[in-house]
Design a protein around this nucleic acid. Sequence first.
RNA 1: GGUGAGUUACUCAAGCGGCCAAAGAGGGCAGACUGUAAAUCUGCUGGUUUAUACCUUCGAAGGUUCGAAUCCUUCACCCACCA
Length: 399
Amino acid sequence: MIQEALAEIARGTAEIIDTERIEKLLRGYFEEGKIYQVKVGFDPTAADLHLGHTVLLQKLATLQRYGAHVQLLIGDFTAMIGDPTGKSETRKRLDRHTVLEHAKSYQEQVFKILDITKTEVVFNSKWLEALGVDGLVGLTTLFSVARMLERDDFDKRYKAGQNISISEFLYPLLQGYDSVELKSDMEIGGTDQKFNLLMGRHLQRAYGVGKEQAILMMPILEGLDGVQKMSKSLGNFVGITEPANTIYAKILSISDELMWRYYELLSKRSLDEIAHLQKSVSDGSFHPKTAKENLALEIVTRFYNEESAKIAKEEFDNVFKANQLPSDIKEYEIETDCWICKALVDAELELSTSQARRDIQQGAVRIDQVKISDDQMKLCDGEYTLQVGKRKFAKVKVR
RNA sequence: GGUGAGUUACUCAAGCGGCCAAAGAGGGCAGACUGUAAAUCUGCUGGUUUAUACCUUCGAAGGUUCGAAUCCUUCACCCACCA
């Protein structure tokens, strides 16, 4: 029983630190019904969750089935410093109102996956504000600069002669201190958070919390481009609140190679089943497109339902296989005798008339499914369907 | 505090008085081919009612010049080294 649970928990993880401890927590649950605290941190700056977040969330949901109580930590205090992982720009401090709003929006999304009765939302400003300069200085004595510089990204930047600010040293310390306050038994995060996660362990020891959190690291999900990590700012994401049709279409646009990665990290199918599927595709007995469709259907179903997923697929096939128009196209009203380039801009299909002109010259623009080549034409009264490229549509009423 | 280097379009990065809306790469968009996949090939990639044209852009503001991303001055920011 415990071993089974452990195997399920370990599935897809990149690294686990202190498996013995996790085993102990599970034993406590199975034998005595003891629950334990699992910490996960979120930045309150981005309120839209995407598939990358769900890798963590799904793992948490699994843990919740085995006795975990989730501490969903909103890093409202640390967010203003900015995580040094990645680019560092001085961030604006968010006001209380905005933070609460983001947190609320998080909860709406998070509980599509997590069990609300086993989750608690906490804000680290609560204790970090109270920490004071005194406490902060105390905290900084517990870790050395040399060890801080061991951290991979600091090391690289230091050697490359790039700037590292003191506040960036504070970030992992404060995040680790959260684990002290929360007395977490386990923390889950992406592999890029390894240093920060370990800091929690280190500080729990230093502060004599009486336990050291186990660490569960999940791989970072690549974005739609298959190279960089999925993030909203890079625009390579699939948001979990996006329309079913969009989610479906985005999944279908990923490369075959990336599809297996998504299967591994997002699908609920067993690893054996996925391996089998992969084999069938590589020996040609199963079409990769079908495999991708199944994946897309599974993911859409998770956030909506089977019916919506089916409709999304039909819509997709209609538009891209049969070259028909999508069923819901935005409508715009345009004045008569409108220059085509201007109309394209007004219908929000193009950003500028110059761009519109270029696209027309390249044969990317269609009116009522017919390709046009004259960038000087005007639209007279009537209703038209404008299309730019393969996926941008708009209906216009000209009068 | 001293010395030196730097700030160019979405990103990196060339340019060092006119041929600069600004090389090149990446990214993005579009076309061909497809499974709206990848790979590949091609075109485009500041704006403007139609442009061997004009306008805005090369950290900011001034100046020199017929003419400046390029030279000078001041300011801001950033980095390294020395203290």
